[in-house]
């Protein structure tokens, strides 16, 4: 699919590297050197047969192996996603729970409306505003997410705070709303009433009965956001000069660097599949009714 899509795009690799003003003979010579003047099926076969053996191939544009680029970029993307995740998931769920427990009171309104408002702001807007405040005026946080070479864990974390904030803002409202509606439904359910009526302490009711049921839909939502957090952050990566896999794929597509593009997309596909699997697993842990292999 990606391969065929790439062929529809205008231009060719040699032209993309040498630019529109290069001599046609030079472009032909480069295409020949890179092997992109071979028939499409030959190119595809040579790439896919290597890929299944673990060789991602050689980038047309950078003329060096694709694997280090993809692995570095994926590592970076996962770091940023992890920081954003650690920030947004507990706070988002907490926000939703607090809102549900204060249903229709001012606190609920603030969390729901506030969350929704920041969610609809595109991340390049919130990103620039945050950079201006924390990077340019206050100078508390570095503007670029690319940490210095050999930076330790905490330095890396420090550099990732600012870029993860816009992601937090985008996802907070979403997760909080899901958690809130799940909570409201669970609070309203028969089992909660039973639990309260049989005299359990309120805290135990919330922890043991309400939360466990309320969070199920939220987990699905969080899992589907993982794909976005890993591969869909082209704007954030560009703004914060971060070498993630989203911008890797974006530049590969622009340069018609097929081995890089295809490897990047397949990698994201794998990450997405793993995230969904983990979500299913968590779901089954929280919800005994669909536990695999159960007798019920």
């Amino acid at each position: 699919m990606v391969f065929l899509g790439g062929q529809v795009l205008p231009g060719n690799v040699g032209r993309a590297i040498l630019g529109p003003f290069a001599d046609q003979r030079a472009v032909d010579a480069l295409n020949h050197t890179l092997g992109v003047d071979r028939p499409l099926l030959t190119q595809y076969w040579s790439w896919i047969s290597n890929f299944v053996q673990g060789d991602m191939g050689t980038s047309y544009i950078f003329r060096s192996p694709v694997a280090p680029f993809v692995i570095d970029a994926l590592g970076n993307s996962m770091k940023l996603a992890a920081v954003a995740f650690v920030l947004v998931v507990p706070i988002g769920i907490l926000g939703g729970v607090v809102a549900a427990l204060n249903l229709n009171r001012p606190l609920d309104r603030i969390i729901s409306l506030g969350g929704l408002s920041v969610t609809v702001l595109p991340e390049f807007v919130t990103g620039i505003i945050l950079i201006l405040i924390f990077g340019v005026w206050l100078r508390w946080l570095p503007i670029s997410a690319a940490w210095p070479r050999d930076a330790g864990f905490f330095t890396q974390l420090y550099y990732l705070i600012l870029p993860s904030l816009p992601l937090f803002l985008v996802l907070f409202g979403y997760i909080a709303r899901m958690a809130r509606s799940g909570m409201i439904e669970a609070l309203d359910s028969d089992y909660t009433r039973t639990a309260v009526l049989k005299g359990l302490p309120w805290r135990t009711v919330i922890w043991r009965h309400v939360l466990r049921n309320a969070l199920l839909p939220t987990i699905t939502v969080i899992a589907t956001q993982t794909g976005y957090l890993i591969g869909g952050l082209v704007v954030i990566e560009t703004l914060f000069r971060y070498q993630g896999i989203g911008s890797l794929i974006f530049t590969a597509a622009r340069g018609k660097d097929f081995p890089m593009l295809e490897s990047g997309i397949l990698t994201i596909g794998i990450v997405y599949a793993v995230a969904t699997l983990v979500a299913d697993f968590l779901y089954s842990v929280l919800n005994p009714r669909i536990r695999l292999g159960s007798d019920q």
């Binding site: 950079i131 201006l132 990077g135 340019v136 100078r139 503007i143 670029s144 560009t238 000069r241 530049t251």
Partner: peptide
């Protein structure tokens, strides 16, 4: 030399002293 894919982050980096 630090590489940027876009102009806006370069401007912010200059303004922010990076």
């Amino acid at each position: 030399f630090t590489f940027f894919t876009d102009m806006q982050p370069q401007i912010l980096a200059l303004q922010g002293g990076q």
